[in-house]
Design a protein around this nucleic acid. Structure first.
Length: 169
DNA sequence: TCAATGATGGGCT
DNA sequence: GCCCATCATTGAC
């Protein structure tokens, strides 16, 4: 679960689609060519957010995964809204539930996540991730990553097959 | 339903 | 100066 307690309201959502990015072995990764001011949190301690601005319009949220000194992150590609749907709808200018957070740029807009939220420890609040209290396990499928031009064949895109909105292709 | 396209601005070669 | 881990809109079918 992705959770963000804000003064405007309590937001939470189930993470249903992700993509993994490595470091020096992955040409599609921001960390491929070494440390820069933008990507430096990817080289830091795990469990922190890495948020970047792209295409002149959008922010994308990642979680740093590897131990300090080794770059690696997981891009959050889609979530299913649980709480704070009214706030998400307002921010997105979009009232179709399926279109609220079914893309990496959409979910950051719905949650109000920007570069200011990069480098934050996600293991404690108010901006954090938590395990869902669910009894039911539904499998995950891996496919090729999308929206990239390098290393296009690595099967690092992961879907939760119980999701309602994102089609597995 | 799907492919093509313009908007838009920061990051890096 | 070119690239880009995107989105909403447009127009063809």
């Amino acid at each position: 679960m992705l959770v963000f307690k804000q003064k405007e309201g309590f937001l939470s959502a189930r993470i249903v689609e992700t993509e993994a990015y490595l470091g020096s072995q992955d040409p599609a990764s921001h960390a491929y060519r070494g440390v820069t001011p933008r990507n430096r949190v990817m080289f830091g301690s795990p469990g922190r957010s890495y948020v970047y601005f792209t295409y002149g319009n959008h922010h994308c949220l990642n979680v740093v995964t590897e131990e300090e000194g080794t770059p690696g992150a997981v891009l959050i590609r889609a979530v299913e809204p649980i709480s704070g749907i009214e706030m998400m709808t307002k921010r997105r200018g979009q009232d179709k539930l399926e279109a609220l957070t079914n893309g990496p740029g959409k979910l950051t807009q719905a949650f109000g996540i920007t570069r200011e939220h990069s480098g934050i420890d996600l293991t404690s609040g108010p901006f954090y991730m938590a395990e869902e209290n669910s009894k039911k396990w539904i499998p995950i499928r891996a496919t090729k990553r999308i929206g990239i031009t390098q290393a296009v064949d690595l099967p690092f895109r992961f879907f939760w097959l119980g999701n309602k909105f994102v089609s597995v292709t």
